[in-house]
């Protein structure tokens, strides 16, 4: 296997990566499947557009985001119920339009809005959290070739931190998936 390999150094202490460039989405997906089958978990794909089936190829399970949204939504619902019960029923009960101070239909808009609001917060900030965002820098940006990830090239990156990572065997594994190019982005000082 002779694939052109270059090495880019990063400052000490930054995580190191192995970055492979592919010509087609299919080749990129096959590489992801191979890494998945080899038991890798800390790897990612970078493509100019979403590729159907990539989640399965990378062995990703269902997102946990739904559970975060559910918990936040129920919290919002309960907050709405507590708010209206306290404000209308306990703190300052006023009879409006002949309705009882605590009347269920009047709860609905407030509970609905708070459920939606907290669910939306849960969805947005939960997504940030699960994706470890915001993140101002990532080692892939050390590579000049990586700029093509937003144009016409498909990339797979494997973190050195992956328990399965082996400095000799992993580049061989990647080379067997026919990339255009391999870049090793590592801390050359150590």
């Amino acid at each position: 296997m002779s694939v052109e390999t270059t090495t880019v150094s990063v400052p000490e202490g930054r995580p190191a990566l192995l970055l492979a460039e592919y010509e087609t989405p299919g080749a990129c997906m096959k590489a992801a499947e191979k890494l998945r089958d080899a038991g890798f978990t800390k790897f990612d794909t970078h493509t100019p557009f979403p590729i159907h089936g990539m989640d399965a190829a990378m062995g990703m399970g269902d997102s946990k985001l739904g559970w975060i949204v559910l918990v936040m939504g129920i919290t919002g619902l309960m907050t709405g119920i507590a708010l209206i019960t306290y404000a209308n029923g306990i703190d300052y009960p006023i009879i409006v339009g002949g309705k009882p101070a605590i009347s269920i239909p009047a709860y609905v808009p407030v509970c609905f809005e708070l459920t939606i609001l907290l669910s939306a917060f849960g969805a947005v900030f939960g997504m940030f959290g699960l994706n470890q965002l915001p993140r101002h820098h990532h080692p892939v940006f050390e590579s000049d070739r990586f700029k093509a990830a937003t144009d016409d090239k498909f990339f797979v990156s494997v973190e050195y931190a992956d328990p399965k990572f082996d400095a000799d065997r992993t580049p061989e594994l990647i080379a067997s998936t026919h990339p255009n190019h391999i870049e090793i982005i590592e801390d050359t000082e150590s």
Binding site: G97, G98, K99, P105, A106, V108, P109
Partner: peptide, 12 residues
């Protein structure tokens, strides 16, 4: 459905 009920309920 609730919107229909709610406005009618409030306005009476």
């Amino acid at each position: 459905s609730f919107s229909q009920f709610f406005l009618i309920w409030y306005a009476s």
